[in-house]
Nucleic acid binder design. Structure first.
Lengths: 212, 212
DNA sequence: TAGTCAAATTTTGCATTCAAAAATGCCTCC
DNA sequence: GGAGGCATTTTTGAATGCAAAATTTGACTA
């Protein structure tokens, strides 16, 4: 198995699941489940520690990072900036095919909203935001976004959506698609900021934090 | 020696010097000079590879990353976004002491400009930008900025400055300080973007790139 | 003399091993 | 019966060893 693959799989284990924040990372178990020795696993742990998903306690092993209230605030602030930048860059660069793809995602997202299917809604939502970042055609930006989004994801996912917020989010997404289609960079950046800020308030209001 | 220390020292070796971009990274030599074995060095290499300072070629070792024309463009685009975000966040948060510090840095930077001391000028310039990022009081943002700035630095440093550009840069810095003092977040973000965009054009026009 | 192919050497990536540090459990003593 | 301390076990972090891959070397051929 290749190095990047170990990092990806470990990241997946940490973000999508199994290991709760703050929990010890069972080195031996993961070695067994990945069928590798400790050396490549530890290399991956250091990389994810640099990304902020893992905290290394000297001589006391590694744990899945906890998100404090402050972390959530900082991550959202940066995410806002990154998405706004992505939007501005995407407007002049996005292809018709990419626009169509986003429009389709938007349509199915609205479907899921109508069906009140929160999980599918979130999946579409995520894909749309990722598509915008991809349309910005900037690998450095995409890398940072991926890293921030991965850390935010858990916080976002467990947030229950009030009906009003949900309706508002849908409206904002219409405006996002609209701005993209009009190639209105400034406008798109502004809407994305507003959208993210609202999301953040929602998360913060839900009192989300993992202690420390 | 601690893990983070190895990463720092290796980063320093790569950014501030000794190993030219594209050159092979001499694993054995560095192990000797750091007085560590290959394992911790390789861990540090993976971390810096994730940061983009090192490229790992499977079964062919690691090399100091080269900056292509495209990399420079992408890094500046992201840097613009990060600094603009930092400026917006810094305005409501910056303390009087921090403002004073930046004003002093600005004064000595102008001094160095008058003395046509390019290196000292660049040092002050860098310290000002770092101070603004610090004033934003966001560790995630600061981390990303540090990473982007480290990669850009070489490109920026070797750029010779035309007299007009230099004068303009000074003017822009006056405007930056002004906006900070007025706590004009939008204005500051805008000036920072303009400032960075100009810098980037300058670097690109100087035809800077390390091939590939 | 230049080119090509194969052997030898080096380098890489990973597993294993080893010493030191932390955690655990057991025993004693209060 | 519980707290404290010592020994044992486990875990961590790093060095070493080993097999596979790549590069270099050198000899042979055209």
């Amino acid at each position: 198995m290749m190095h990047d693959e170990v990092v990806s799989r470990l990241r997946h284990v940490l973000t999508e699941g199994e290991i709760p924040p703050g929990a010890r990372i069972p080195e031996r178990e993961l070695c067994a489940s990945f069928a590798i020795s400790r050396t490549p696993l530890r290399e991956a742990l250091k990389v994810l520690a640099a990304e902020g998903l893992v905290v290394l306690l000297p001589n006391r092993g590694s744990r899945a990072a906890k998100l404090t209230q402050r972390d959530v605030k900082e991550l959202f602030e940066v995410c806002e900036g990154l998405e706004a930048t992505a939007g501005e860059l995407a407007c002049p660069r996005i292809s018709d095919a990419q626009l169509r793809e986003i429009a389709e995602l938007q349509a199915s997202m609205v479907e899921h909203y109508r069906a009140q299917d929160l999980l599918s809604y979130y999946r579409c939502n995520r894909l749309i935001h990722e598509a915008i970042v991809r349309a910005a055609d900037n690998a450095v930006l995409a890398g940072f976004y991926e890293s921030v989004a991965a850390r935010i994801r858990r916080a976002r996912f467990i947030t229950p959506m009030s009906p009003e917020h949900w309706a508002l989010a849908i409206q904002e997404h219409e405006a996002i698609l609209n701005a993209l289609q009009r190639r209105d960079a400034r406008g798109l950046a502004h809407i994305l900021r507003t959208h993210l800020r609202r999301k953040r308030e929602e998360v913060v209001r839900a009192g989300f934090a993992e202690g420390e």
